[in-house]
Design a protein around this nucleic acid. Structure first.
Length: 270
DNA sequence: GACAACCTGACC
DNA sequence: GGTCAGGTTGTC
């Protein structure tokens, strides 16, 4: 599902509506999505105020009074929706939290998503958070070049490696590389420093535009209010196999890299 | 690296 | 019936 812009959109939606509200009830309806490292039953949250909802990489972090916290990863099809209509596919409803003024529902068709109920000490050493690389927005050019050069595998796989940089997934890797004019299969040793610096600029640019458009809804993604994003209308290459490149008109090519569909323009990306 | 696994649904 | 899907993890 969601990559950085989608998770950021959801985090902001939930923070705006839910922070300051008190938890009245919380329960798993399906424990398949309960993370193994969960330390507490959801009932420990009852009576606590939600202090904030934030994002780290593709993870959502809820902080409550008394140092309780939730870490949530939506994987491919997870959704967190405020005051979703109840009749809406109960079959895929796996977790629910009732606040004094709102209800938060976690849906996931494929059940890949995970929710962990923990506390501050659990947050610090959470396996999903501890190994994450830096956020793309926090990187200087020098840091980015150094990070990328640490490994010698195709640049797209480096961008998608959460331990190197956190938050970039398949869509934004393809779109950023297109914007920077870099072929996804190139290894960093074959990319000049100026081109790598341009790549970081493209990443920041593409992610920012997508956040401003509330993310990409090509399939399942919905924001915290159950609404679609708009960035799918601005996508240049992702999922556009065989269609003309918006810049030069050449057909967009699809290859498989790291088991993921990869889309690029053979003329614009070298 | 490539590949399978975790799941379900959409599409050909 | 087969293929594919915004992710991650574990195994040859």
């Amino acid at each position: 599902m969601p990559e950085l812009p989608e998770v950021e959109t959801i985090a902001r939606d939930l923070h705006n509506v839910l922070s300051g509200q008190k938890v009245m009830a919380a329960e798993f309806l399906n424990t398949a999505i309960r993370e193994d490292c969960t330390r507490f039953a959801p009932t420990v949250l009852i009576g606590n105020n939600l202090e904030s909802v934030s994002r780290r990489g593709k993870n959502l972090i809820f902080r409550f009074q008394n140092n309780f916290a939730i870490v949530c990863h939506l994987k491919m099809t997870g959704r967190l929706i405020i005051d979703a209509d109840l009749p809406n596919n109960k079959k895929h409803l796996h977790f629910q939290m009732q606040f004094d003024k709102s209800r938060l529902s976690f849906y996931d068709v494929r059940k890949f998503g995970r929710i962990c109920i923990t506390d501050l000490s659990g947050l610090e050493k959470h396996p999903r958070l501890r190994k994450l690389g830096p956020e793309p927005f926090a990187l200087t050019s020098d840091e980015f070049v150094k990070l990328v050069k640490l490994r010698n595998k195709p640049i797209k796989l480096i961008l998608m490696d959460q331990e190197i940089i956190a938050g970039i997934g398949n869509i934004y890797a393809d779109e950023s590389l297109y914007d920077a004019g870099i072929k996804p299969t190139l290894k960093p040793s074959k990319i000049s420093r100026p081109r790598l610096i341009k790549l970081l600029e493209s990443i920041v640019k593409v992610l920012t535009i997508s956040i401003n458009n509330r993310g990409t809804s090509v399939d399942d993604y919905l924001d915290g209010h159950g609404q679609k994003g708009n960035f799918q209308n601005l996508i240049k290459v992702y999922g556009k196999t065989g269609q003309p490149c918006p810049t030069c008109g050449a057909k967009i090519k699809r290859v498989v890299l790291g088991g993921r569909s990869t889309h690029y323009c053979t003329r614009c990306q070298k």
